[in-house]
Design a protein around this nucleic acid. Structure first.
Lengths: 221, 221
DNA sequence: GATACCAATTTGGGATACCAAGATGGTACC
DNA sequence: GGTACCATCTTGGTATCCCAAATTGGTATC
């Protein structure tokens, strides 16, 4: 693996894992000393992460993108459009047996499963569901949107009830998809995404003060 | 403007303008001598263009992305999802007077207008329409999709009748949007996109031999 | 104590040198 | 003539150096 890929991967992991907080300043020199790579691959990695929306330009200089509540709302609308489109395509497929693989992903989480795993599977559900459509652009759109949502979802305060509710909604979506009932599956998915968005934004807005205290930039617009 | 932006802009223009043909190999050294910039900004520009899908990696080395018929079909499905979503948002706005600005864009083309201008306005119609939704992600999705379609649309053989038909469809979409009739506007837009896709892919598939003879890589999958 | 100003440092943008791996082309041998 | 092999060149990957601009910190002045 090239240095660029290595730096990109590690930096993305640190940002998504909140080891580097939203809103934090980054300098190429700091990354250089931190990862032991020279600035050339570092700059390449930053350019890639910029297109993912994980880092941004702050005048001259780099900043880890803050959590942006308005952006989260917009992403939800975007997700709804592309995920529903992908799901409708999947419902129209002759062979929809691949939904069983996704169902198995959901099954792999139980009460002993660590929170990180729930978080990952919760995102992969949507990503893999989109992949089934066979449309590369819809798939990438969903994957990129989930990447942008990742940190916010991790910061969301979620109780056991909220998680089991989400899982129930996931299963209901798969059930309709398995039957090829596109309208019902689309309706359930839309409801799920809108509900998730409302809970997410509400949760973050409530915790905004606490999150800022932890050094995490959370902006309203 | 930084060297990187300058190189990126010029390179994009050359690729979209088919001065560098689809499928052509690019070397960083050639670009270096061609634009008089060093490899550092050139690499940055290539990385950006890669995310736009205009250039790609060919093992070790860079290639101008070929025209990919299967990809064009997938983009049309993607476009339909995001453009319809954006249009529905716009129809729900209280103030939809901005559609008049787009109508004026259409009006600016007449029989004396050069083909380049028709091409540009035909794309900007969709991009600006998406911008009206106010959703940054839907807007960017449409803009990026149109960028990827740009070269193929330019190569498409279009007669006067096809253009006036497209313009009529554009006007009909705007008329429904102005009335706030989301369902009708969405239906018209879907039909327009699907029809455009069919004509585009058919045209390119028919001309594939000729295009290849001009050095343009056109791949089926 | 506030402020205007200057020097030193830091930072990203760019240029260049070097390297390893792959492509190329020629040559010797069959 | 064909093929296997080796020297050479090319190319992207990386490290490093230089530069201009911006930030910073201190200081002199009011």
């Amino acid at each position: 693996m090239s240095q660029m890929q290595s730096v990109e991967k590690q930096l993305r992991q640190m940002i998504l894992g909140l080891e580097i907080g939203p809103g934090e300043k980054l300098t190429e020199r700091w990354i250089e000393s931190r990862f032991g790579a020279s600035r050339t691959p570092i700059r390449a990695a930053l350019l890639r992460l910029e297109t993912e929306g994980l880092v941004g330009r702050d005048g001259r200089g780099w900043t880890v993108s803050p959590i942006n509540l308005a952006e989260l709302e917009q992403i939800a609308v975007y997700r709804e459009a592309v995920e529903v489109a992908a799901l409708r395509l999947t419902c129209g497929l002759a062979d929809r047996s691949a939904v069983d693989v996704i169902e198995a992903m959901l099954d792999s989480c139980d009460k002993d499963t660590p929170r990180e795993e729930w978080h990952r599977v919760g995102m992969d559900f949507h990503i893999e569901l989109a992949r089934l459509s066979g449309n590369e652009f819809l798939f990438r759109a969903v994957r990129d949107a989930m990447t942008r949502l990742s940190r916010a979802r991790w910061l969301e305060v979620r109780d056991e009830a909220a998680l089991s509710r989400a899982w129930a909604e996931h299963r209901a979506i798969l059930a309709s998809a398995r039957l090829g009932d596109a309208d019902e599956a689309a309706r359930l998915l839309s409801t799920h995404i809108v509900g998730s968005r409302d809970r997410l934004v509400t949760s973050l807005a409530n915790d905004r003060r606490g999150l800022r205290a932890r050094g995490f930039a959370v902006v309203a617009a």
